[in-house]
């Protein structure tokens, strides 16, 4: 994409055109800050964190920001959902970039800053809140992606509460033998999915899971291509969120 634009710019007569092929992911990976847009801060499904001292947040903060002073960030890091896009701001650029680096080092993949920090937001006319902070609880729900089944629906099916669903465990036989399998679930390893499609009911919904979601996603693609009504669970099944009952070996 960037090469296409660069080619067009060259045609328009720009003499000095370069392409940063590694792109935004490499920039973030190198530890350099990225920035977000006002509209995304206003309405995006994000966790917005004010890392300034609490009294400053009381005096005025970006609407819907959660106040976690930088000194407390490390203690609260496990309260922040790992797969949420996290947007930070401060009144000190160095502190802001340090916080970005801390979160990324801890495994957060989507961390960005408010351009110009709090002052930048105010001067851009962004909405603010003033007054005491009622709660510093982080409420964030992931929006399900294409083809994903919610944990609640998945749990209902493995609990036997949804007879119209056929659940597939796409892990290997060895994994199942060692760790057990959910109730009401059939083990079809990913590499057997193509050859065992005749075992699957065409008149039921199919949910696929594995250990993290990667293989389930692949099985989902394959089954969808073959006309099945299928969804997959994008979740590490060891997470507490999925407390589905397991039949131990």
């Amino acid at each position: 994409m960037s090469t296409t634009n660069a080619g067009l710019a060259k045609k328009l007569g720009y003499k000095n055109v370069r392409v940063y092929l590694e792109g935004e992911p490499a920039w973030s990976k190198a530890g350099y800050p990225t920035y977000t847009s006002k509209g995304y801060i206003d309405t995006g499904n994000i966790v917005l964190i004010d890392i300034r001292a609490s009294h400053k947040a009381v005096e005025g903060r970006i609407k819907r920001a959660v106040s976690i002073p930088y000194d407390d960030l490390e203690d609260r890091i496990d309260d922040i959902p790992r797969n949420a896009p996290v947007i930070l701001y401060s009144d000190d650029q160095e502190e802001a970039t340090d916080a970005v680096d801390d979160l990324r080092s801890d495994g957060f993949k989507h961390v960005a800053l408010v351009p110009g920090n709090y002052a930048g937001w105010v001067s851009a006319g962004g909405a603010i809140e003033i007054g005491p902070i009622a709660s510093t609880e982080i409420r964030w729900q992931r929006i399900l992606g294409k083809g994903e089944v919610s944990v609640a629906d998945f749990k209902k099916a493995t609990d036997g509460g949804d007879p119209n669903v056929f659940v597939i465990d796409s892990r290997t036989k060895e994994e199942v033998a060692e760790l057990g399998i959910f109730k009401n679930t059939t083990n079809i390893p990913l590499d057997e999915i193509t050859s065992r499609m005749n075992e699957l009911p065409k008149d039921k919904k199919i949910y696929v899971h594995c250990s993290t979601g990667a293989r389930a996603d692949m099985a989902y693609q394959e089954l969808k291509k073959n006309g099945f009504d299928v969804k997959f669970l994008l979740l590490n099944i060891e997470e507490a969120e999925c407390d589905c009952e397991i039949l131990r070996p």
Binding site: T3, N5, A9, N16
Partner: peptide, 20 residues
């Protein structure tokens, strides 16, 4: 491209989501 600088000598750096 009208939002690009008028000065055609200026350095332009294009990027996207990278190869990975």
């Amino acid at each position: 491209e009208t939002v690009l600088p008028a000065n055609k000598e200026q350095l332009l750096v294009f990027y996207c989501g990278g190869p990975t």
